[in-house]
Design a protein around this nucleic acid. Structure first.
Lengths: 131, 131
DNA sequence: CTTGACCTTCCGGCGACTGGAAGCCTCATA
DNA sequence: TATGAGGCTTCCAGTCGCCGGAAGGTCAAG
């Protein structure tokens, strides 16, 4: 299976697949007589695996870990769970950060009349001497 | 005032200040006889302004807009408000995305026993044929 | 006069791709 | 058999918002 077809199956751009190969996230694909990459069903599993892991917000480094656990028949599921829990914690931190940002922005927006006059508490606050 | 002192006042790394100058976000600082950048109080306001806008999640492009509004005495506060509201919308979209991510991850984690056995629904789901 | 903390510029790298150029390969159609 | 479209290959550059480091000039204190 050529890279284009594999890309469709895995819902990944061909560019991204080649990139993953380049950085060693996935193993180099087999090559046909014409030099084209040739993907097996096993390869497709791996590609989909990575696509989904990335979709869940795991970084490429995490994906390496996950893939090596995936391939390790002697893995402990606890290790996988730990990675996922770290991910959850990071997501939760990010959510809180964004919620606090949202709060601040909303307060600023509420105080701005939003008309054709130049006075604007948003700009004033940004430019203020302190805080 | 040298760049180091300005950096402390504005709570920005010196590298970042030079970078902002390089990309034309802020105007080139005046130079002393020794070639050192020299920052005025007005410059400090601008630096703090940018620091806070970035802290609120505005991109550099938005900061350009905000700075040009800040300098424009004929601005309409509506324009500033619109920028802030766009930012809020973007933040809210991101929050929802992350919350949905969190949900998915939590479901996966709940189903994983997290012991020393290799069976793991997280890995199974990532590798699954579809969905 | 030396030391160490500044300052200057320039270059390269980060993460995770994405776009584009230049050049093969393949396949369907005229 | 020629042609054209599309797919494949590699490599280089750019994205965003910086950060680290090297090589060298400047300055204030001891």
């Amino acid at each position: 299976m050529n890279i284009g077809a594999a890309a469709k199956q895995a819902e990944l751009p061909t560019k991204t697949i080649r990139y993953y190969e380049e950085i060693g996230l996935i193993r180099p694909a087999a090559r046909g007589a014409n030099g084209y990459r040739d993907y097996s069903n096993e390869d497709l599993h791996i590609l989909r695996f990575v696509q989904r892991a990335r979709g869940l917000g795991f970084g490429v480094r995490d994906c390496r870990e996950l893939l090596s656990l995936y391939r390790d028949r002697n893995r402990a599921s606890a290790d996988v769970k730990a990675l996922a829990e770290q991910r959850i914690a990071a997501v939760e931190r990010k959510i809180e950060e964004l919620q606090s940002l949202r709060e601040t922005l909303c307060h600023l927006v509420e105080r701005c009349t939003g008309d054709d006059r130049p006075e604007c508490p948003i700009l004033s606050d940004l430019a203020a001497e302190s805080q």
